Simulated assay, not measured.
Amino acid sequence: MFNIYGNVQFVPGKYDAWQNAYDKLATYVADAERNSTLTYYFGVPVEFEGNHSATPHMLAFEVYNTREDLYDTHLKSPAMGEFLVTVPDSMSTGLDLTHYTETSGFLDKSTNCRECKIIYDTQIVCNSAQDRDTILAKLAAVAKHAEEKEEDTYTFLVQKSLDNETHLRIFERYASWAAMESHQKSSVLVNFWLGSKGEIKSMEGRPYVPNNKGWLHHRV
């Protein structure tokens, strides 16, 4: 699969205007691009959980079958053309996209799009391409543990960057804040971090909450 993250930055107070334009786009995409735009999912920083309208930032996570599904179909659709004409005044930057493909893990353990309470975005930079391969292999074991042993870890999708040879990312979803903390404190994950200092150059993570737009995947 071809996955992207969108780093969406809003002019202060313009989130609602952007979302009004998005709602029209999403209606089109859900129907016309059902077989190519597979995931269209969004989160706002957890500190804006009670006031989405005030957020200056939003995380977009999207999944397509191929790069062409994004760049030749989705971004060139008439609905997207109308959207891109409408939203510039509400965005403080242009489109800011990064590209990935999954290497292990799971998008939806429940298979029925059960909504989470917390999204967590983990970004890792390795020292070399070889180190990234090592970390990806280790994370496959972490993902297997999360899938088999952590009931409230809804998503743990490990992905490597297609833009460079050293970056990787984990898209995570949890039933609750406590479930996220339980995962982070697990011996499997702690041992991963402690045993990977030689391969990892930097790591950062940020929590989000779903904004109740889009879809994790289309239900069969």
Score class of each variant (00 low, 15 high):
K160G: 01
K160S: 00
S161P: 12
S161D: 09
L162A: 03
L162M: 10
L162F: 07
L162I: 09
L162H: 08
D163H: 08
N164C: 03
N164I: 07
N164T: 11
N164D: 15
T166W: 01
T166M: 00
T166C: 02
H167P: 06
H167A: 06
H167N: 14
H167K: 11
H167Q: 14
H167L: 00
H167M: 01
L168N: 02
R169T: 13
R169E: 09
I170C: 10
I170E: 10
I170D: 06
I170G: 05
F171N: 01
F171D: 00
F171E: 00
F171V: 05
F171I: 05
E172L: 02
E172I: 06
E172K: 07
E172H: 10
R173I: 06
R173Y: 07
Y174R: 04
Y174Q: 03
A175D: 11
A175G: 15
A175V: 10
A175C: 03
A175L: 00
S176C: 04
S176K: 08
S176I: 09
S176N: 09
W177S: 14
W177F: 10
W177T: 15
W177H: 13
W177E: 14
W177Q: 15
W177C: 01
A178R: 13
A178H: 12
A178S: 14
A178V: 14
A178M: 09
A179K: 03
A179F: 04
A179T: 11
M180F: 05
M180Q: 09
E181N: 14
E181Q: 15
E181D: 15
S182H: 11
S182P: 03
S182T: 15
S182W: 00
H183F: 13
Q184H: 14
Q184F: 12
K185P: 12
S186Q: 09
S186P: 14
S186E: 13
S187V: 13
S187N: 12
V188E: 14
V188N: 06
V188K: 07
L189V: 13
L189D: 08
L189S: 03
L189N: 04
L189Q: 05
